[in-house]
Design a protein around this nucleic acid. Structure first.
Lengths: 258, 258
DNA sequence: AAAAGTAGTTGAGATATATCATGTCTGCTT
DNA sequence: AAGCAGACATGATATATCTCAACTACTTTT
């Protein structure tokens, strides 16, 4: 098992050791960093051993020292209620930044756990901070990522406070679909990296409710599900139920500035 | 009426035209800005006419150009659902920063409306941005404010997804109490700037439910309410119901660094 | 000061979703 | 390959909260 893992590392490190050649760079650095700037950023980034399913990237309370970009796999972030239950606050797919909410504390306010085998780029915060001073574009990129997270959180509050079970699940699937699309994968067919339980936890629903909505959506031919494999048959109607217009699902954000 | 308003402006502008002498500066600028830095910040800040109750500071979709610090009064921020309902995402009290979630868009993603007569300091974003380049402390302060907002939003998600009506209302009152305390007001007796309806909207509850919880809390002698005046009789128990320990209610954050 | 509108309270009944219980499927472990 | 544990699905029932309705107390208008 350990030999398998090492093989994986070797491959990844060999292929994508540098931001400049990383296929995700246009997503995780969607800014007009010039080659020199990217090179500087590149130097402070540490590549880490892949996390296995269930491994923690960090835990709530751990000393905050780095932010991370997901390279492959996926993570769930969650906080603990005082009676020990977990509340998932986010799922993170490749190219997404993780850990920015720890910036003004000495410790991470959430835990982050791998849903599957996952690789990340580690960006030591003190280095990032000093680099941000020199590179205005990078600084704005960080502001940008954070304000996007805030906006997403407000949408989540709306979902949790006003939407019913069907609308929640439809929103969730539509959102995932858009994120996969943006990453160059099919927006129609994908594999859920999380369990029904985790979906329910995230959406403020019981597992059983999530399950029932999945079945209802299959009955009315909006989706076809096989375990974690999801195929969206009628994206239009899914988004209608979600209560968003196509363009709202995920704001395109500033891609590589022209 | 207009003469009254002007009188108000005159008073405010005369008394607190400068960050250095503003009684809120230790809260809205809780950083170790030296006098020179404060002076620079001071120069870019515009003082605005007070908003009357119901006036908008900005509307969802308005061109984003400034962030604001509340000087007196209070604001509610809200987004619109596609069927025209509003979802309140935040209430803002004096010293709090408003508008940071617009940073990476050309427009504000939420609307901000005065709950009462309210004065704000306007900070044009382009000026702030260039100033942030020169002042690392200011830059970190902005990061800090944003990451605090993200953390608060996660707590709100937890509230909306896991807490029952009593826990929600108790959390809300406890949180307000702490914020007033931090601003030098009594944590036990204060005036709610928002209506029951707005509390319900924010907490994901019907007005009637909020009202009933208020009555129940009065019956069990945790609070005494008279209209918008709230007196907290048993803060300990209130926080217990909220499901937080005293220190969690609001993280102290970095106050004026020693 | 009366009228009229708005905000808040309280009760009764409706409902979406949670909970409990059971059964089935899936993927691991040995 | 068999057996087992966890994930998922589905039905029956319970319940917290919503909705609707009526009443009261303020606030603002005329």
């Amino acid at each position: 098992m350990s030999s398998q893992q090492n093989k994986g590392v070797g491959l990844n490190l060999a292929k994508e050791t540098r931001c400049m050649t990383c296929s995700l760079s246009s997503l995780c650095l969607p800014l007009s960093l010039n080659l020199e700037d990217i090179d500087q950023l590149d130097r402070i980034i540490k590549r880490r051993q892949p996390l296995k399913k269930g491994d923690h990237l960090f835990r709530q309370g751990d000393h905050f020292d780095s932010v991370y970009a997901v390279r492959s796999g996926s993570l769930k972030n969650y906080i603990m209620t005082n009676d020990g239950e977990e509340q998932i606050t986010n799922f993170h797919l490749p190219s997404e930044l993780v850990g920015l909410d720890g910036v003004d504390c000495s410790s991470y306010p959430v835990s982050s756990k791998a849903l599957e085998t996952t690789t990340v780029c580690e960006i030591p915060y003190t280095r990032l901070q000093s680099l941000a001073q020199e590179l205005p574009d990078l600084r704005n990129q960080i502001f940008s990522s954070m304000s996007k997270e805030i906006r997403d959180d407000k949408q989540m509050m709306l979902l949790l406070s006003k939407k019913n079970a069907e609308e929640r699940v439809a929103t969730f699937l539509g959102n995932l679909s858009s994120r996969f699309k943006r990453r160059g994968y099919s927006p129609y067919t994908f594999r859920l990296p999380m369990s029904r339980n985790e979906i329910g936890n995230y959406l403020g629903l019981a597992v059983e409710t999530v399950s029932r909505v999945f079945t209802r959506f299959q009955t009315i031919q909006i989706i076809a599900v096989n375990g974690k494999e999801v195929h969206i048959t009628d994206r239009q109607q899914l988004l209608e139920i979600a209560g968003v217009t196509e363009c709202e699902v995920e704001q395109p954000g500033k891609l590589i500035a022209s």
